[in-house]
Amino acid sequence: MKIEVLFPEICNLFGELANIRYLESSLKESGEFYEITYTSLKDEPLFASEKPDLIYMGGMSEHSQSLVVDKLMPYRDRIIDLIKDDTNFLITSNALEIFGERIEFCDADYEDIKGLSIFPTVAKNQMYKRFNCLYLGKLGDMEIVGFKSQFGHSYLNGDKNYEDLFETIKGTGLNPEYKNEGIKVNGFLATYVVGPILVLNPDFTKALMKRMGVGEPKLAYEEAAYESYNQRLNEYKEENRGFYY
């Protein structure tokens, strides 16, 4: 089993690399053999020549978004082929914006960034108005908990060529005017929700491990993971619980 982590030297904000550390511990717990490739900006991505069982990319600074787009642009067609071929991607935080048409900065002298244009979305950031909320959503029967902490939101700018990843129960979706959250095409899963999402959501992690080919997924510290998850889930379901900071 091969996992590729893209650009960990810059895509490492908000504790998100713990997604991979936790996945690694859980694969060990499940008795799986695995290999993790950490691809830096100067490396040729593993996915250029192989089909990894999971490609992961996490949140980054706005300057880094520009570097990542420049790096991935030559591989745009390959990424589209991998998505069509049902490759598993987990893309979190503002890494989601890389795959859209454009990243705009409305109130700062940052230059707009042209995205990979795989999805018809435009990210609109307000650099002096950071957005924070709790998030409660659903993916099939699974309930998803987490946080959103970002400068902007993504807006559809054309014909939708993806499904929503999560049905939002509480919190904000892909943008304040659109209820649902994230982008899903086959095994490509992208969401603004952070946590780290795999640590906070044991059911979701098990489902992802199954998609990656683990027959009977077992989580590391499963009991503690479920206790933490259930406490948060119950809190988020409370009627009077504030969701917007």
Partner: peptide, 12 residues
């Protein structure tokens, strides 16, 4: 009022 954003635990 809300619930703590605990992401920082995984940077610590």
């Amino acid at each position: 009022h809300w619930s703590e954003n605990t992401c920082w635990l995984y940077d610590c």
